[in-house]
Computed example of a mutant assay.
Amino acid sequence: MLDTKRFIEFREKINTNIGKVIVGKKDKIDKLTVAFICSGHVLLEDVPGLGKTKLAKSLSKTINCSFKRIQFTPDLLPSDLTGIYFYNQKLGEFEFRRGPLLSEIVLADEINRATPRTQSALLECMEERQITVEGETIKLNKPFFVIATQNPVEQFGTFPLPEAQLDRFFIRLSMGYPEFMEEKNILDIYIDKDPLENLEAVISMEDIQYVQENYTKVHVSEDIKSYIIEIITATRKNNNVELGCSPRASLNLMKGSQALAAINGRDFVTPEDVKEMALPILSHRIILKSDLSTSMASTQELIEGILNTVHTPLEKI
């Protein structure tokens, strides 16, 4: 039996706590929570200064998980992420120096500034949940959650993520600029101190294990499954699309809809859940014919058009 109250409390605790640091972004925090529940990873695509690092740090404090931030640069090597074995002369033996990937929450800042080799090392860890150093396989911590950022405006000295690597991310989000009153509120709460410094954990490891292990118990009807597949198929058949969504997108859309339903207190998925998760889950998995663009605005417009044309199933109560 699914305890939806625990999911509601999980969502409310995260929203309230992170809301002390990040103002007016409850919808984005909900999507982040959904990705975390589904053990997915998040790509934050935005200009600098909109709170991406604050969001990642406040999440790690809220759920009481270890946190590491990696600034990606062209000279960053895969071993800088995974760690290395070095010879300890005092002990006369080799020791393993842990890399930042052996943390529970990892912020990969400006991932598109690293070379493809280093990008691949991170993305392999995201998929396999393990690293290999000197032939030895090391399992990553659980939970393991990556928030990667990239600046969509500054392209000088960057290595854009190819479609196959973008597909590894569960969702793509954009924080966006705050509204007038939201920005004024930011000035008020940061005027004399940084609220992140005093943020305390409100989520236990038991809470995390429960939501990650039980969200799949949310019922998905045959009509909803067909609805998801019809949306995915429409991305492959659209005349403006060079490359449509993969079966991984179908699975992620179903899982994301289940998690969204759970944090909203339901044990069944509705078409509205699918529609709400379609944009962040599918937008980075489509390449358009016109300019082979993966920009968020153009792909989201296409997905919205698909959602308006695909028949929405009626809810059966």
Score class of each variant (00 low, 15 high):
residue 269 V to H: 12
residue 34 V to I: 15
residue 294 T to I: 08
residue 150 Q to G: 05
residue 66 S to G: 06
residue 7 F to K: 00
residue 222 E to P: 01
residue 290 S to W: 02
residue 250 S to I: 04
residue 254 M to D: 02
residue 65 C to G: 00
residue 243 L to A: 04
residue 132 T to I: 07
residue 69 R to V: 05
residue 114 A to W: 03
residue 249 A to Y: 00
residue 310 V to D: 15
residue 217 K to S: 15
residue 131 I to Q: 09
residue 151 N to C: 06
residue 65 C to T: 04
residue 81 L to V: 11
residue 258 Q to K: 15
residue 317 I to L: 05
residue 136 E to C: 02
residue 198 N to L: 07
residue 152 P to Y: 01
residue 183 E to C: 09
residue 315 E to Q: 05
residue 20 K to N: 15
residue 156 F to W: 08
residue 314 L to I: 13
residue 177 Y to I: 10
residue 11 R to I: 00
residue 189 I to K: 06
residue 217 K to H: 12
residue 140 L to E: 04
residue 234 A to R: 15
residue 266 R to Y: 10
residue 26 K to C: 00
residue 62 T to P: 13
residue 53 T to Y: 05
residue 188 D to Y: 01
residue 105 I to A: 10
residue 102 L to F: 13
residue 114 A to T: 15
residue 235 T to K: 15
residue 252 N to W: 00
residue 94 F to V: 03
residue 218 V to W: 12
residue 182 E to I: 00
residue 317 I to N: 08
residue 44 L to G: 09
residue 130 Q to T: 14
residue 44 L to E: 13
residue 236 R to T: 02
residue 229 I to D: 01
residue 224 I to G: 13
residue 278 A to I: 12
residue 221 S to R: 04
residue 148 A to M: 11
residue 104 E to F: 01
residue 270 T to Y: 03
residue 204 S to N: 09
residue 63 I to Q: 07
residue 114 A to Y: 01
residue 93 E to H: 03
residue 142 K to G: 10
residue 83 G to A: 08
residue 145 F to R: 04
residue 61 K to N: 15
residue 179 E to M: 07
residue 136 E to D: 02
residue 299 T to I: 05
